[in-house]
Design a protein around this nucleic acid. Structure first.
Lengths: 144, 144
DNA sequence: GTTAAATCGGACAAAAATATCCGATTTAAT
DNA sequence: ATTAAATCGGATATTTTTGTCCGATTTAAC
C-alpha cells in the first residue's frame, strides 16, 4: 500500500514522537534500531521529514531529533503519506489507467471507490500523536 | 495496491472474457492492444493465466486465448490477485512488520483492519464475469 | 578554541520489479 | 506435407525502488 520509504517515514515519526513524549531526544542510531530500518536509509528519510517540518533536528554533540507535540496532535497520517507517496493512495487507478475516474471508470473503479474513500477518511482522521500514544501505552509495536 | 504484473493480468482476463462473450477468440496482439500493455510482457502473463487454468490457449493459425464462461462467473478477483501477488493484500502489515497481527499490532493495524476486511470481501465477491459484463455494457473501460 | 558527536547532501550500489528478445515448438488451415 | 500463425520458455535488458558510502558541515560540551 505504502512505499517502503513511506513505511520507514511513518514508523520514524511515530518513534520520534514517542521519544519526545518521554522527554528523550532521539538520535539516528536509536531511531534506526527502534524501528528496525537501515541506518543510512533512515538518515535520508529523517532529512526529508525535517525538510517538510514534520520533525526538527538538533546538530552537535548530544543532538538528535524531536517533534513539536502540539503539531503531532494535528498532523494527520495522510499528510505524511502524501509527502512520500504523493496522491496515489487517494487517486491512482487500481488497474493503472491514467484517466480512470467516476466519469470514465475502469472495471473495478465503482466497487473500489467506497473502500478508498473510507481509507482516506481514516488516514485524515488519524494523527501521529494518536499512533504514538498507542505505542507508549504498550498496545502497539514498531518492531517484531 | 496490486503489482503491475497483477494489473496486467486482471485487465487481460477481463478482456479475454469479453472477447469470448462476443464469440471472438483473442490473439496476443489483440489483447496487448486492447489493454494497452507491452506485448512481450503480456505474453508472459497470459502464460501464467493459462498455467493456472484461468484461461486456455489455442495454438496454431487463427489460435489465441479464450475463457470458460461458466468458470468466469465463479472466479473471483481475489483468486486472480492471490496468484499474482500472493496474500499480501489480505495479510501484509501496512508498515512492513513481519509479525503484525491483532495480537501484536503495529500502530495502524486496528484502524486499517476493517478497511482491509471490506476490501477482501469485495474482491471475493466480485467475479471476472461481473467485470467483463460492465465492459461490454460500455459502462467501464480498459484503456485511456 | 578544540573536540567529538551528530546531521547533511550528493554520488554511488544493490536488489527487485518490469519489460524485451529470440529461437523452439505446436498446430490449424490449406 | 507444407505453411504460417500463434504460443512457449529461458535468457537477458531496463527501470524503479531501496539502500549504502563518505566527506563536508554544524554545533553542543568541555
Amino acid at each position: 500500500m505504502f512505499s517502503k520509504t513511506c513505511e520507514h517515514a511513518i514508523k520514524a515519526i511515530i518513534f520520534v514522537t514517542k521519544q519526545t513524549l518521554e522527554g528523550k531526544r532521539a538520535s539516528l542510531k536509536t531511531i534506526a534500531f527502534g524501528i528496525e530500518s537501515p541506518e543510512a536509509y533512515t538518515a535520508k528519510i529523517l532529512q526529508l521529514l525535517v525538510k517538510n517540518e514534520f520533525i526538527f533536528s538538533i546538530k552537535g554533540a548530544a543532538g538528535g531529533f524531536e517533534t513539536d507535540l502540539n503539531k503531532m496532535k494535528k498532523l494527520s497520517l495522510m499528510r505524511v503519506v502524501e509527502v512520500f507517496d504523493g496522491d496515489s493512495i487517494a487517486n491512482r487507478c487500481v488497474l493503472g489507467l491514467k484517466t480512470c475516474s467516476s466519469r470514465n471508470p475502469c472495471p473495478f473503479h465503482d466497487k473500489y471507490a467506497p473502500v478508498r474513500a473510507r481509507l482516506v477518511c481514516i488516514l485524515e482522521n488519524t494523527s501521529i500523536m494518536d499512533l504514538a500514544l498507542g505505542l507508549i501505552a504498550g498496545k502497539t509495536s514498531l518492531k517484531e
